[in-house]
């Protein structure tokens, strides 16, 4: 059954090299967040902060939490979860936008 193949993949996780590289990437992105906060981009400040945060979360989930090495069922579930959260947030803001 699919049971065993998943276990197999999970064991073949990322190497120490990859993990370190990702960690450095996360640090760089943190520096970007802090740096951009000092520059006045108006509305775009929020957009940049959110985009960087999303990228960081994606790296953590994909590599550190092994999602990249799982089968499509798990990927689909996580994606669906985010889609639903996005809908919740979207619908809530949509009220404020038209109020």
């Amino acid at each position: 059954m699919t049971h065993d193949t998943t276990r197999e993949n999970a064991r073949h996780g990322p190497s120490y090299g990859t993990l370190t590289a990702i960690w450095c990437g996360l640090l760089v992105l943190t520096v970007v967040t802090v740096g951009v906060a000092g520059v006045d981009l108006g509305f775009w400040n929020v957009v940049v902060a959110m985009a960087v945060a999303t990228a960081k979360a994606a790296l953590v989930v994909l590599v550190f939490m092994h999602l990249k090495y799982e089968n499509w069922v798990f990927k689909g579930f996580v994606l669906m979860t985010f889609a639903i959260l996005a809908i919740f947030i979207g619908f809530t803001f949509f009220d404020t936008a038209y109020r």
Binding site: I84, I87, F88, F91, F94, D95, T96, A97, Y98, R99
Partner: peptide, 21 residues
């Protein structure tokens, strides 16, 4: 069912567009 919650809020003062949707 996850997309209908604001039917509890029709008279709360939220936007009319949201009420209709």
């Amino acid at each position: 069912g996850s997309l209908v919650w604001a039917h509890h809020m029709f008279v709360s003062g939220m936007s009319d567009t949201a009420v209709m949707v």
